[in-house]
Design a protein around this nucleic acid. Sequence first.
DNA 1: CGTAATAAGTTTGATGGTAGAACTTAAGAC
DNA 2: GTCTTAAGTTCTACCATCAAACTTATTACG
Lengths: 399, 399
Amino acid sequence: MVDAPGTPWHGPASVAVRQANLRERNLAALVAGVCRAESPPSRADLAVELSMTRATAARLVDELVAAKVVDEVERPRSGRGRPALALRPGEGIVALGLAIETERVIARAVDLRGEVVAERVAPSTSRDPERVLDALAAEAREVRALVQARRVVGVGVAVPGIVTEDGLLLRAPNLGWSDVDVAEGLRSVGGLHRIHVANEADMAAFLEAEPAPGRPGEWSDFVHVSAAVGVGGSIVTGGRIVAGEHGAAGELGHVCVDPSGPACACGSTGCLERYVGIEALATVSGLAREDVATELGARAAAGDTGCLAALEQVTHALSVALASVVNVVGISSVVLGGHLATLPPSTLEAVQQRLDARVLGSRWTPVRIRAARGDDAAAATGAAHRALGDLLARPAAWV
Amino acid sequence: MVDAPGTPWHGPASVAVRQANLRERNLAALVAGVCRAESPPSRADLAVELSMTRATAARLVDELVAAKVVDEVERPRSGRGRPALALRPGEGIVALGLAIETERVIARAVDLRGEVVAERVAPSTSRDPERVLDALAAEAREVRALVQARRVVGVGVAVPGIVTEDGLLLRAPNLGWSDVDVAEGLRSVGGLHRIHVANEADMAAFLEAEPAPGRPGEWSDFVHVSAAVGVGGSIVTGGRIVAGEHGAAGELGHVCVDPSGPACACGSTGCLERYVGIEALATVSGLAREDVATELGARAAAGDTGCLAALEQVTHALSVALASVVNVVGISSVVLGGHLATLPPSTLEAVQQRLDARVLGSRWTPVRIRAARGDDAAAATGAAHRALGDLLARPAAWV
DNA sequence: CGTAATAAGTTTGATGGTAGAACTTAAGAC
DNA sequence: GTCTTAAGTTCTACCATCAAACTTATTACG
């Protein structure tokens, strides 16, 4: 789903490169250096880090500054010598991150620093793709108006379903959609370079792999579980999402926890979704669906029997399902997203312990598990990052 | 396990590129073009394919020819115009592919065309790492002597165990080895640039992804099952092997087929290995272990009850285990290697049908399954390809 | 048999991005 | 007030590629 943008420098050597590509590549390296840095670097810092001459770094950075891809900021003077002009990712560059959920649509604008600079959320109860997309397009236009002073370099759309490489939404079970051309439906937003359509679970995982554009996250190899109405999963290796052939890697929600468990809409029985999906947890805990994320941990700590049972169910189901994932893929870090991100630490610990017991390689690399850091619209932010990734990969196109 | 060799051109933009890298990259693109081609291309063909000028292509190819990385061959003249000098991967470049198995060691020399140009196999019954490695080193020296006229550009070693990134064999259960520095043990071969140590299942999968050096295989995304004494698995996406964190992606042999099944040495119960490993099949079929690969299909076709039962067992266990893999990873092509490559077509078809029934996405992309094409030392050839990959990625280092 | 057509490969000068080194600028240290 | 340090700038040299003209080797055809 998240492919390497910019052809000549990635993947197998399949096309010749020329001097212009050299410049492109070095511009990209500089932008990446600025985004990756903990504290704003100077031109000279970048030159050292990337082992290019100060002359080249300065010349290229000047272009990036002119294009507002990076900003110059004052840096508290430290030590002797001529003070440096520090560089940060440009505030003036944003991408729109859109998300379609079962009950609302979201439009965000995210800048190159990873800040959400504008947002609109609208309820969306219709099942009709055209109406939902029109509503989303309206919100997107509003958000774009809010950031009029900035340059919108792209759009990403996160959808809860299977997406082909050219952006066709094949099937979204929880929306009841089939074969919807999302990009076409958003054409009315207008003036957008390219519309990236991608799976919401992948986009949420992408945000964990890259908390700010171009900045690597805590882990670069992990399994991400996104739980909402449906339960999805994504596999990230080397900071990149592993896309299955049909664009739906990690149908984690339908990994079998117990063959003799409850029937699932997918036709199978005992799927993970039936144990840790929002419906299942609401039923067992006795909470309303919208309260599960906020209340479950507290109520269980207070001794609520239903909530305790729900946590035990989550612990069991997750450890069984994740064990097979970890064994198969050999990645032993797990990030829990959606309402599972709000599980109490004790539950995460319990899952981790049971996983260690079930996982072969745990003697060598013990299983690590943590909650996702994104907010409740992580997929929208991730989609925006995805779009900003176009610029990061080939800033030359924008200078 | 199979990482991207050659730093500046792969992965995130993290270092500046200079004009020398341009040349390196274009040399690599030309070599890749020659290796990838169905029929030997001319300099002009390559120039068109890679969209570089004939002048540049010719100049760089001349260097590659001088270094014997590519050979010029006469091409049957076709059509008018000045006849072209066709180009093929150089016969004079070889890499050694070594493999350590439970009962033998193998040394091969494989040239850039993917031909095995020399081979030696020696039985190896010792459990002592030092003696086994010495024996392997001796065979490697013999093979190198056999190809003395050619240039040995690297060595790859396939081992049945978990290998760290820097080539330390952490654990090989079926050899009874722990923490063995394989590269160090082979130092006595002498004069080798770098020794790549990798997991045998990954190397066998690599050979399926790349049947000849630089030439993409039939599928670029698949799950590869390598069955021998142990059962391993590897996941290939985009022609590259997905390495788990601990270098042992795809512990497929220990995916659970039936929780109430027979106990496994790994501590769990009902693991795939207990159903499709060579031991299990020998027991059920009544065949000797060494006859399973050759006899099982024929005897079953002849109506042998034990062999029929063995095939049914394989069909069941594979379809259950692979279903979870396919669901989790979203890759719906499967290649069966080792003795599973000799299963009769009817069994493959049966597995595929049951998988389609179990796999969610099969309505969109039906499951495909085929036998591996490599011989019984595919891992050794794959390891040689791995080593040749160094040259393919950066031919400039050898011209 | 000779000429035209075609296409491969070669030579030449121009272009453009980076390297290297000297230079300028802006601060702190003494 | 001068020295030191380090950032940023300017200039020339280098070198890989491009573009286009040129040479070479073959087939097609009259």
